[in-house]
Structure formats: structure tokens, C-alpha cells
Amino acid sequence: MNTATANRQLKVGDALPGFTRSCDEIQLFLYNAVLYNAHRIHFDYPYARDVEGYPGLVVAGPLLGDWLHQCVEEWLDGEGELARISYSNRGAAYVGDALHVGGEVTAVNEDAGTAALVLWVRNDDGATLVPGEATVQLGGGLRP
């Protein structure tokens, strides 16, 4: 699906389409295996609950960051480049949670051909678990 339209004018307040994801036990296990992350809160439910005090298996923070990156790349749709991204895990997400990933254009620099974005991962309660920021270099059909 193309999310960027040829010759689309960007302006402050434009929303990235975003998406909703939910991580299951298998995805979480495999993701952490690739990262060599053996922290038991990601695969051992009794440990996560009884020792660490979490209500469920904790979704890995880097996976949430990867979803922010994916949100930007899908929105660019090959019509620009992600120049910089940063995020901070501020709240825990758990297996089975519906997590809403999105963003918004916060600044456009016509001279440089760049745009600044604010990004987020939010839970169903609307709490921002992972705030982020990105800068994109525009090209192709996206322009300031």
C-alpha cells in the first residue's frame, strides 16, 4: 500500500498513517533470541510475574523501537530517507497488548528538504509508552 502520494506537500500537523501491533509469545521469544537477550522477563512468565512483579511477559524495548522505524519507513514509501531516529522506553508493554504506533510532522525545513517528526507507541489506555523523534530527508514524491 502506498502511503505517500506523488508530489504530496507536507505541513506541520500531518499524521503518519501508523498501525497497531500485538506481540505474541513466539515473536517475543524469537526476537530476543536474535538479540541474544536472555532476560527471563521476556520468556519465563512465572519469573516475570512472581520475581519481577510484572503482570505478563514484557515486550522487548528494541522491538518497540523497530516498530517506530517501520512506521517512518512505510510512510516514506521510498520517497525519502530516515536521517535520524531516537526513542525512549518509558513504560512496559506486555504480550497480547494492542500497541498503537504513529507519528506527526512537527517541522518542515524547505531549504534543507527535511522534516521533523514526533513518534509514539501508545497502549489502549492512550498512555505513551515509547516517545520518539525522527528527522527525514525528503525526496521523490514527498516535498516540503
Rank of each mutant, 00 (worst) to 15 (best):
L138N: 00
A48Y: 02
G61W: 03
Y87S: 14
L142N: 03
Y47L: 01
L16E: 04
R143I: 12
I26W: 09
V51P: 02
R40M: 11
T135L: 11
R122A: 15
A38N: 14
R40E: 11
G61S: 05
A112Q: 13
V118T: 15
E52C: 09
A116N: 13
Y31A: 01
Q9D: 11
A98T: 10
V12K: 08
V130Q: 01
L10P: 00
L142W: 00
G113L: 01
A38R: 15
Q27V: 10
A115H: 06
W75V: 11
V130N: 01
L63T: 08
F43Y: 14
G96Y: 03
E133S: 14
V108I: 15
R84S: 12
R143T: 14
L63N: 06
L10S: 10
E74P: 07
H39K: 06
L30I: 13
N89R: 02
T135G: 03
M1E: 11
V58W: 01
Y94E: 04
P17I: 09
R40A: 13
R21N: 06
H69K: 14
V51R: 03
D111W: 09
L99K: 05
A116P: 06
K11C: 11
E73L: 14
V51N: 06
Y87N: 12
L64F: 04
L117V: 08
R90Q: 11
D125K: 12
D124K: 02
L117C: 07
V105H: 01
D24N: 15
E133R: 15
W67V: 05
D66R: 12
I26F: 09
Q27H: 13
A98M: 12
A112G: 11
E25F: 07
V121A: 04
R49Q: 10
V136F: 01
Y87T: 11
G113H: 04
Y94K: 02
P131E: 02
E73Y: 09
V118N: 13
R90N: 07
A115K: 00
G141H: 03
Y94V: 05
Y45S: 09
I85T: 08
R21C: 09
T128C: 12
P46S: 05
R40D: 05
A134H: 02
T114G: 01
Y54M: 05
E74W: 12
T114C: 00
R90T: 09
T20I: 13
L57D: 03
L57C: 08
V51K: 05
V12P: 02
E110A: 15
E110K: 15
L16V: 11
P46E: 09
A48S: 07
G139L: 06
L10I: 13
D125T: 15
N2Q: 13
S88M: 12
A116E: 15
R84Y: 12
N37R: 08
G96E: 00
R122N: 09
D97G: 02
Q27G: 08
V51C: 04
P62E: 06
M1C: 10
